[in-house]
Design a protein around this nucleic acid. Structure first.
Lengths: 223, 223
DNA sequence: CGTAAAATGCTAAGAAGTTAGCAATTGAGC
DNA sequence: GCTCAATTGCTAACTTCTTAGCATTTTACG
């Protein structure tokens, strides 16, 4: 399940200039994590920036009942930990590995030193953070203003390749429900509403959007 | 109605070193706005950073029905517009003046030039943005995980002075409902629940927290 | 002081979401 | 090809929130 922050915001390693990428790699240590292994815990006070090199990581919170509430999933090139570093707060989320992953770990002080010297890196990390804040504000607005079907349509559209006239995405309803923060039952109902309107086709492990343009128009009309 | 981003995240002008503050003032133009005057519109593509000098501004979205959905209110020292500038996106919100306000307007290119030269300023704006992203993530998590009474308790606590044993805050229920994105009826019910537990006292235009510590404990137990 | 506006309190009907559980369908792997 | 786990579809009872409306209380101010 790739997710909104991974898609809505650019990856640090993709927008940073080559020389900054090299400097980051030199400043950190690559660590391999097994499936499910905990990378950081909420409350940790040892700040640092981590960058996914291979695989993917799950950012979320472990609730009191032990269930993991996923906030987002980050893939290669994406960074995390910079919020806590710059805000000076303890880590706000638990991070665990999805499958086997490689993560570049850079100590807080090292990263800040690079940030001070390298204005291009500074601008890149600022761009990532600003884009994420934007995405979060959007989601918050959507939750307040739009009904579930519309939010679902927007989520599905965010998975579609740009400029494609139609698309089919592989996903299970449980994950879609997670992303939107609702139950599977509610998500199923919302999907059915879209299906009745002819905007999507629901299948086992996939959702098709036969006319992305129509879906976009519908979502725009509602929001 | 001061609001969460104003309280949860530091103000740029307060954490930036004096010399950066001076440079920012020199780089921008102060403009005075009347009550309700529109400062920026959602969709604007002319990027720039704005800093509130006096008064306050309302960040929000004007819905299709014409109603203004407030996202946050920013007071003196706080900046806005940097998301759109760094993310390279059009402005995502409408900004209007609350009462008469003075806003320092800095053109995008000028701000970026300062950002490149002045690492301390870069760090300050990064700190503000990271703190805001943190706050937004927290709110999103809360919406998914906590019931309304608990979220209300956390909101009220965010208005209380630090380390005070008790507090009374001036606010109308309509504004609290807005902040939490719920109706006034639901907010009233949530307030009543807290009142029955003896955690708050509700009055006309104010809410008292006679025992902040007890309220904090209760909110923590629930979330 | 008296009045009007603002704010709160409350009700009722209905919409939407939740949990829990079970049946039916699909597909992956032996 | 069969089996079984994963996934989807659906129902029912329950909870929460919404809208709409009106009564009551409080405050501001002429």
């Amino acid at each position: 399940m790739a997710d909104f922050l991974d898609r809505t915001a650019p990856a640090l390693m993709e927008i940073a200039p080559q020389k900054s990428v090299v400097a980051l790699r030199a400043a950190g240590t690559s660590i391999v994590y097994d499936d499910g292994e905990l990378i950081h815990s909420r409350g940790d006070r040892k700040p640092g920036v981590s960058i996914v090199e291979t695989g993917a990581v799950n950012i979320g919170i472990i609730g009191r009942n032990g269930a993991f509430h996923t906030v987002t999933v980050l893939g290669p090139g994406h960074c995390f930990g910079e919020h806590a570093l710059f805000a000076g707060s303890p880590r706000t989320h638990d991070v665990s590995s999805i499958g086997r992953s490689t993560v570049l770990q850079i100590k807080g002080a090292r990263f800040l030193a690079l940030f001070e010297k390298d204005a291009e890196l500074a601008r890149a990390i600022m761009t990532v953070t600003a884009s994420r804040a934007n995405a979060l504000l959007d989601i918050l607005d959507d939750i307040r203003r739009l009904d579930l079907s519309t939010r679902l349509a927007k989520l599905l559209l965010s998975f579609a390749p740009i400029d494609a006239p139609a698309a089919s995405i592989n996903c299970v309803q449980t994950d879609l429900a997670f992303s939107l923060g609702v139950s599977r039952v509610s998500l199923g109902k919302a999907l059915k509403r879209l299906e009745k309107l002819g905007l999507v086709v629901v299948g086992y492990g996939y959702v098709e959007m036969p006319d992305i343009c129509a879906l976009e128009n519908w979502a725009t009309r509602n929001g």
